[in-house]
Design a protein around this nucleic acid. Sequence first.
DNA 1: GTTATTGCAAAATCTTTGCAGGGTG
DNA 2: CACCCTGCAAAGATTTTGCAATAAC
Lengths: 156, 156
Amino acid sequence: MKYSKEKDSVMRIFTSYLERKNYRKTRERFAILDEIYSIKGHFDVESLYEMLKTKKYTVSIATVYNTIELLLECNLIKKHQFGENTSRYEKSFECNNHDHLICTNCGVVVEFWNPVVKEIQETTSASTGFDVVYHVLYFYGLCPKCKSKKTDETKR
Amino acid sequence: MKYSKEKDSVMRIFTSYLERKNYRKTRERFAILDEIYSIKGHFDVESLYEMLKTKKYTVSIATVYNTIELLLECNLIKKHQFGENTSRYEKSFECNNHDHLICTNCGVVVEFWNPVVKEIQETTSASTGFDVVYHVLYFYGLCPKCKSKKTDETKR
DNA sequence: GTTATTGCAAAATCTTTGCAGGGTG
DNA sequence: CACCCTGCAAAGATTTTGCAATAAC
């Protein structure tokens, strides 16, 4: 388990969440959180399960799902469903400000940042009375590569 | 099959899409599109299938999935995955400008409008080279009802 | 010691697929 | 009349559940 300031923080957040809810602080739960915060980018349950199996600490797939549920509740991870049938996740501590462009042709996912999204979030919170915790914004369309391919096809 | 200007338009769009792709214009495909455009709000495959079975024209679930795929391709419907495991859909002809607030506690979905989203879409298209066709924006948080319930719990 | 949590496998749910028959172009 | 599309049922994939064993408190 490599040390990092980020991991230290999320471990503390998770600990206090578990304590507040009177949930047990098990080895499995912390191993899963540690593994997730070692992953760059998105992951799905299957790949997380495989990583845990080979690298550090074997847990059952049921426990992976259980822990992911807890991590979603305390906002340490984000759940995405980019249009496939498998859910994908990503850590969300101090990186909850980017959004995604998804190519409807090849499926490539690209990240982008736009501070205006946060502003819309605040406006919407105020006007609807919702207490918005986080957002998810997807732009669907053709990536530059697929776009030029389609143009070629039309030319033929 | 009730007449409406909207239905007339989407039927024509779908017809020309099928012709352009050299796909066949079957009764089933038009019955499904007609049913979808009779639905207010969101629906899932199961409920659409049930509606078709009882109301107009029985089709197999495989055909429902197949047709939904086509309607997604020509942007006549939108696919949502609000966090559950079942996908939900909605018609998107001339109503592709609203977004969704989702309560993480009770699951209620509320719509909202904000024209700034369209602006972000254009900025992002320009800067990334993506040809963005549509977007999906979800705000997750507590709805007013659940918010006040949680506050009560804390007070105790 | 109690009781929540884990692991395993089986079940449940949603979606896709293969194939024979039927309908569209 | 060729062959794409449909319907059916079975298979696939992902997620959930039930229950005995285990470990946290």
